[in-house]
């Protein structure tokens, strides 16, 4: 890849994360939600992979290594914000604050369960897609990893 694409890729990363954050936060008010935000983020990261190649991209952004874990954490966050109300006897996906109650706001961000649910989805999708990109960056692996098999057998 040329230096130009590398530069563009590097330059695009931060703005696309901003866009994603915007999509995530204003999801309840306007078009977009956690899912769309996550796809935007993962596309930005895919661009890094394209520009720098898998190895360099991952060196520069070591945090990517935790993508699978992020995905699962996201799933659990979403799941728990969906089902936490059950503990107090409510229906799943009961919304806090409840109908008609006042919503605490931080700027334009309204604090409620739906937001944490959306955030969980964001983490899940972003993590999963990044993991997918990572694995697609190399051809499939066919040889059995023997030492790990032996380890697992123990």
């Amino acid at each position: 890849m040329t230096i130009l694409t590398e530069a563009v890729a590097r330059l695009l990363l931060a703005p696309s994360l901003m866009v994603a954050a915007a999509i995530l936060i204003k999801g309840y008010v306007d078009v977009g939600d956690g899912f769309a935000a996550a796809v935007v983020v993962s596309l930005a990261i895919a661009l890094q992979y394209l520009a720098f190649g898998a190895r360099r991209a991952e060196q520069e952004l070591p945090v990517l290594r935790f993508a699978p874990q992020t995905a699962i954490v996201g799933l659990l966050v979403a799941l728990s914000s969906g089902f936490f109300a059950v503990i107090s006897g409510g229906a799943p996906f009961t919304h806090e604050p409840s109908v008609g109650a006042r919503v605490v706001r931080i700027g334009r961000l309204e604090l409620m369960t739906a937001v944490s649910f959306d955030f969980g989805i964001f983490l899940l999708i972003a993590g999963a897609l990044v993991a997918l990109i990572h694995h697609l960056a190399e051809p499939p692996e066919l040889e059995p990893d023997l030492e790990e098999d032996a380890e697992a057998a123990r």
Partner: peptide
């Protein structure tokens, strides 16, 4: 209702966590 929700959520959460683990381990 608890049973109904538990039947769903328990395997859901555990299954998700297990995705990260090496399932060949006992």
């Amino acid at each position: 209702m608890t049973a109904l929700v538990l039947a769903l959520v328990l395997p859901w959460a555990v299954g998700a966590l297990l995705l990260l683990a090496d399932g060949r381990r006992r």
